[in-house]
Design a protein around this nucleic acid. Structure first.
Length: 209
DNA sequence: CGAGAAATAT
DNA sequence: AATATTTCTC
């Protein structure tokens, strides 16, 4: 048997390589620009992807509908596990201490994602981490189930939790991250339209896709 | 201006 | 219930 202490050391020395292994390769990222829902799931859930079906503007035409600046009220963003993972990767890359909404947003490179979207999510995420710190044992953080599941969908990098070692911003350790060559398209994450709601449900039920 | 925490709104 | 917005301080 391996003592838990030794086990922890082992994890400590290897969390990075584990984290590294979990990074998506470019081949995995590319499809997200096209559709977020795998074809089989799309069929199973009767989802019309934005691929085949151009999305309709939700507003009834008081203004010109395709001018984002004027007419389109911003819709509610849905933080799918995929989107959250991007968020966590960005925060991990930047370092928890100096990750701020604007830079996180830039790192995520999600088309249409706003600083406010990220700020709001970051606020929630920090509360989640604070709750996790407080609980010395176990994993249940005591929040509501849906939120817990979302945040649990991406592993929290260990160094998010202990404040002990942080890196000054000019000496960040090298962290390979999947180069954000392809953008997510944020309209795939909006809740208002029915199709996105179905997509959200499918992705929540099958977070591995 | 922008971060961030808390309260409040949708 | 989950996310957005507002308000306030730094």
């Amino acid at each position: 048997m391996i003592s838990s202490l030794k086990m922890r050391e082992h994890d400590e020395s290897n969390w990075f390589s584990k984290w590294e292994q979990q990074l998506p390769n470019p081949e995995e990222l590319i499809p997200l620009t096209q559709t977020l829902i795998p074809p089989n799931l799309a069929i199973a859930f009767d989802i019309t992807t934005s691929h085949n079906q151009p999305q309709q503007p939700p507003n009834s035409g008081e203004f010109d509908s395709d001018d984002p600046a004027r007419s389109l009220k911003r819709q509610r963003l849905v933080w799918t596990p995929q989107l959250h993972k991007r968020f966590v990767d960005a925060v991990a890359y930047l370092g928890f201490r100096n990750a701020v909404p604007k830079t996180i947003m830039q790192m995520m490179n999600v088309d249409g994602l706003s600083r406010e979207n990220v700020a709001s999510h970051l606020q929630k995420y920090r509360l989640y981490l604070k709750r996790m710190q407080g609980l010395s044992s176990g994993d249940g953080a005591g929040g509501d189930a849906a939120t817990e599941r979302l945040f649990a969908s991406s592993p929290v990098p260990p160094h998010f939790l202990n404040q002990s070692h942080h890196f000054s911003d000019n000496s960040l350790p090298y962290m390979p991250i999947a180069a954000p060559q392809r953008q997510f398209v944020v309209r795939d994450f909006y809740a208002d339209d029915q199709e996105s709601a179905k997509a959200k449900k499918a992705l929540t039920l099958f977070p591995d896709c």
